[in-house]
Simulated scan of single mutants.
Amino acid sequence: MTTTDSHNGRRLTARGAKTRAKIVAGAADLMFIQGVGGTTLDDVIAASGVSKSQLYHHFAGKDALVRAVIDHVGEFVIGRERDALGHVSTIAGLRRWRDALVQNNALRHGAYGCSLGALASEVSDNDDLARQTLSQLFGEWQGLLAGVLHRLQDSGALSPEAPIDQLATGLLGALQGGYMLAQTARDVTPMATSIDMALTHIESLSAH
């Protein structure tokens, strides 16, 4: 059985796909902790237990590997958010979503921030292809939040005049800014406060 590498179109055997996935997962873990700039290809080779020739068989260089990491992290984050937000249709449900994100970030005292946001801050100004992928991923995340707000509107819990897209952008911005503030403070309180402010504003636009 073969699969196709989405970046270079090369067909991969099951063994090749497994090796590639091991490299990407190892690189993603390192880049989350050490940052993209602080992670070398030698680090990735050591962490993933592959040879240099295996790494270069799958990736022409670091830029190609970083793009694969963005795909990998994006798939995880958007999958998680799709599961978390897909059926939310109440403000209480949004607050439970907020609680889960804050509590998860509290386990590491805010360190490292959002895995997708951290990648965006490091690569967006240096790699336009990576920036476009990240923009699409954040657009999908915003769309999930907008979906929740549309359901609130449909149920009558949110005013028909509420600007859904702008509110979704503001909520995502509050979340990402909250991650950054928590990262520098090593305390999730600013993250919780940022999201709460956005949710309180949304709740203030209740149709009742």
Rank of each mutant, 00 (worst) to 15 (best):
T90Q: 04
A92C: 05
R80E: 09
E75Q: 13
S48V: 02
V102L: 08
S53W: 07
G113F: 03
K52Q: 09
F76P: 01
H201D: 04
G177E: 07
G178K: 02
L199T: 07
A47R: 14
R96G: 07
T169G: 08
H72S: 10
T13A: 08
S89M: 07
G9Y: 05
L41C: 03
H87V: 15
T90M: 02
H57C: 00
L30D: 06
S121Y: 07
T189Q: 12
L145A: 05
G61K: 08
A14N: 04
V50E: 02
F138K: 07
L30N: 06
A118W: 03
S159K: 09
K62S: 06
G79Y: 05
G143Q: 01
A120M: 11
T133P: 00
A130K: 02
D99M: 12
S6G: 03
G38S: 03
S115E: 12
L12W: 03
L129K: 13
A118D: 14
C114F: 03
P190K: 03
D5G: 05
D128E: 12
V66L: 02
G9Q: 05
D83H: 13
T39P: 05
L205E: 12
G49D: 04
S51R: 03
L134K: 03
D29E: 11
Y179V: 04
P163E: 08
N126F: 10
A60W: 05
T169R: 11
H58D: 05
D187V: 06
R82E: 13
D128H: 12
T2S: 12
T2P: 11
L116G: 09
G93H: 04
A192F: 06
H7Y: 12
I23M: 04
A25Q: 09
G79F: 07
M31P: 10
S48R: 04
V69D: 11
